[in-house]
Design a protein around this nucleic acid. Structure first.
Lengths: 117, 117
DNA sequence: TGTTAAGTTCGATAAAACTCGTACAACGTC
DNA sequence: GACGTTGTACGAGTTTTATCGAACTTAACA
């Protein structure tokens, strides 16, 4: 019986991101201080169900260039990992890395009561 | 036998601050995103030993007007409580309020490894 | 009363950050 | 190849934030 974990089915490589050890609390907090970005992370945490999501999935009524800006900020701060699937760039929260470095932080985001709801 | 808690020995009233229920995660995170302010909170958490401290106690080599700016930012975000003692304005972390609203957040600040040390 | 010390307020400057339009690149499909 | 779709890159305008000097306020005290 072979108990080796199955090889993941060829994922596209992640876009450039800081390594786990490079994550800085100041930077992570600054990234989360923006309400839209907080909302992005919260939605991913609450609704993503193990799938990565392109930024259209979020349903924000904002110009695309604004969204690019915020997703990039999140990625560069180390909050999300992004992979390119054809045209789409899908995002997921780096929950393991974040929990390891900043335990409890994501729980706070999860239970955030956003002003808009 | 009287088990009533002793009346605290006449503290000066706190300067204006947001009530516990008014604390906003975005605002708190933004306040903590600045390295100097993060350092202020961390130092208070690690070394204050139940005393409030005037801003000279921190030993920052910055002009007074800069310090005023940051302490005010922390107070208005709800991170510290300040009381006036004669000429001094002493600060303490609002640990109970913060722990209640954002459990685990202060632990992250406590274990922060500041870039400068 | 005059001096010192802690801290504020105001104002100017400078550096970041947010917002978004326009133009562009890449991939799929007809 | 032309088109629609997803998203980026660049740049400009606007707002926020940080930094700090200078003048002021207040309390303590000799």
């Amino acid at each position: 019986m072979n108990t080796v974990a199955p090889t993941p089915p060829e994922l596209p490589p992640p876009l450039p991101e800081p390594a786990r050890e490079e994550l800085k609390l100041e930077t992570v907090l600054a990234a989360l201080a923006d309400p839209l970005r907080l909302q992005i992370i919260q939605k991913l945490l609450l609704e993503s169900e193990d799938y990565d999501h392109p930024c259209g999935w979020f349903g924000f009524d904002r110009p695309k260039s604004s969204l690019t800006h915020h997703f990039k900020a999140l990625r560069e701060a180390g909050l999300i990992r992004q992979r390119q699937y054809g045209l789409e760039r899908r995002s997921r929260v780096r929950d393991e890395d974040l929990e390891q470095r900043f335990p409890g932080l994501l729980a706070l985001v999860k239970s955030w009561r956003s002003p808009g709801a």
